[in-house]
């Protein structure tokens, strides 16, 4: 791996991802509002929120939350650093799982019933996404013979040609990762949550701000993974990511009352039908690339 480009990618990610992530969420909120024939907040609203949260009183249900949420933020950012420095996809998946464990522990340690139920359901979400992310790495390896992002990017034929099923499964998982749906896990800004913001319900001020920023990082990571399917055709890739994100917002507004049980079932059915079948086909016949 080229050292300079690796460090460059990592530094770019660390500084630009929050900006881009925040903007995406701002656009998302405006878009959602327009779909509901409202005006919606300013595009920079997510940044105002973070700034406000940062200046709130330092309060917590349990002091260890401060450590756990910091761990969550640092490890999510670290996963992104691995990804954007051209590192190993599997390691990215493992680091993400470790990061989520920290968020969950913050919620478990809060001693509050809503927080704990939120943590349990968030954990279900993590569990549902895990096989898709693993199969994604595996699929890329089967097609490009490398787990390393740097090498996957150097291919000229986009992997989407061989891995359409895995891409669809990742698209389905994005619904979950944006935290808007299902409404009984969600922690987004919609007014339709069941668990008073579940996993984040006991966090406030700076701890909440850290989780929000980590969430921006994570969204960029997932979108980057989507982009990876189009390595070799970057313009198409960006277009695909934009279209997918738009479809996510649309879907969220069309199906605002999805429960976690429905999510687990539907996402795993999608995973099995598309991702697993995709992997099996490549395993038997080989990929296009």
């Amino acid at each position: 791996m080229n050292l300079m480009s690796a460090i460059g990618g990592a530094v770019m990610f660390l500084f630009l991802a929050p900006i881009l992530g925040g903007l995406i969420f701002g656009v998302d909120r405006v878009l959602t509002a327009r779909m509901q024939s409202r005006r919606g907040p300013p595009i920079l609203q997510p940044f105002y929120d973070i700034d406000k949260l940062w200046h709130k009183e330092r309060a917590f249900a349990n002091p260890v939350e401060v450590i756990f949420t910091s761990g969550y933020l640092v490890l999510i950012a670290f996963s992104g650093v691995i990804l954007f420095s051209g590192g190993d996809l599997l390691l990215v998946v493992f680091a993400l799982a470790l990061a989520h464990t920290f968020l969950l522990l913050a919620a478990y340690a809060a001693n509050a019933p809503y927080s704990i139920v939120g943590a349990e359901r968030e954990l279900i979400g993590v569990m549902v996404a895990e096989p898709v992310l693993l199969l994604l790495a595996v699929g890329f390896f089967m097609v490009t013979e490398s787990f390393f992002v740097a090498e996957i990017l150097s291919k000229t034929v986009p992997a989407i040609l061989s891995l359409p099923g895995v891409f669809l499964a990742l698209f389905a998982v994005l619904t979950l990762k944006l935290r808007k749906s299902p409404f009984d896990i969600a922690t987004s800004h919609h007014a339709h949550q069941e668990l008073v913001k579940g996993v984040t319900s006991s966090l406030s001020g700076r701890t909440l701000a850290k989780v929000e920023v980590a969430h921006w990082y994570e969204t960029i990571i997932i979108l980057a993974l989507m982009f990876l399917f189009f390595a070799g055709a970057p313009i198409l890739g960006v277009a695909a990511v934009v279209v997918c994100y738009f479809l996510e917002v649309l879907m969220d507004n069309l199906f605002p009352r999805v429960t976690w049980k429905m999510t687990v079932k539907s996402l795993w059915i999608i995973t099995v039908i598309f991702a697993v079948a995709n992997i099996a086909v490549i395993g038997v016949y080989g990929g296009v690339v």
Binding site: E57, R58, A59, F60, N62, P63, P113, Y114, S115, S202
Partner: peptide, 8 residues
């Protein structure tokens, strides 16, 4: 910081 009582 201040420790808040758990929310129920």
């Amino acid at each position: 910081g201040r420790t808040l009582s758990p929310y129920l």
